[in-house]
Design a protein around this nucleic acid. Structure first.
Length: 200
DNA sequence: CGTCTTTGACCGGCGC
DNA sequence: GCGCCGGTCAAAGACG
């Protein structure tokens, strides 16, 4: 676990005039284990916004926007146990050693198989895997020249959660650039983000 | 008719 | 070397 990072926060889906939805990152509920600095930027993978309730303002979320005085708390044990088993199964593969540091796994409670993360995806495969009764879905970024992929599968230990694994970094902005400023809808869920291991 | 999803086949990595 | 498994491809089908 030494080279993994967990963080979690309430993320609220916003109402948005665009076809793509966006999400409010509530930094007051943000927490992270191991007291490590956040060394990846969730906004590379999700069209996140940072909500400042005292000013009733919304800005684009980035790792740098997090305050240094953040209070760290324990993350959920369910998130740790699931991602541990996932890491163990996949660790040691050559491709993972080459590309592991570019992978981010996101676990979210959702009734829907696919969540709108602000990017457009093209589905290219679906596969039953041995370790889970649920199928794994494979997507590529729709933007030409962008090689980012994601896998989406249900948590075999708790089917109310969906695990989304992003591989690579987008070389372009999210298609969701124009954000509405309406108050968020009441759709909140705790997300757990984890950088997968095997960075040298 | 164009776009997107489904699904079976194929390929390569890994463990035995 | 062989079989298993996960990831990808591409033709066929579904859907608007």
């Amino acid at each position: 676990m030494s080279n993994s990072v967990f963080l979690s926060a309430n993320i609220t889906e916003t109402t948005n005039p665009n076809p793509q939805n966006s999400y409010i990152w509530d930094s007051s509920t943000y927490y992270q284990d191991h007291h490590q600095p956040l060394d990846f930027d969730p906004s590379d993978y999700l069209a996140l916004l940072d909500h400042h309730p005292e000013e009733d303002a919304i800005s684009r979320f980035t790792a740098a926007s997090l305050s240094q005085s953040q209070i760290f708390q324990e993350t959920s044990t369910a998130g740790i146990s699931l991602t541990n088993s996932h890491m163990k199964r996949r660790s040691g593969r050559k491709r993972d050693q080459d590309e592991g540091c570019k992978k981010i796994a996101i676990r979210t409670k959702s009734a829907l198989e696919i969540m709108d993360d602000g990017f457009k995806w093209r589905k290219y495969g679906k596969k039953m895997i041995k370790s889970s009764p649920y199928p794994r879905n494979y997507y590529k970024c729709f933007i030409a020249g962008c090689t980012v992929k994601k896998r989406v599968e249900r948590d075999p230990e708790d089917s109310s959660y969906v695990i989304t694994t992003y591989e690579g970094r987008h070389n372009h902005e999210s298609p969701c650039l124009i954000y509405g400023n309406q108050m968020p809808m009441a759709l909140t869920s705790a997300w757990t983000l984890q950088r997968l291991p095997s960075c040298p």
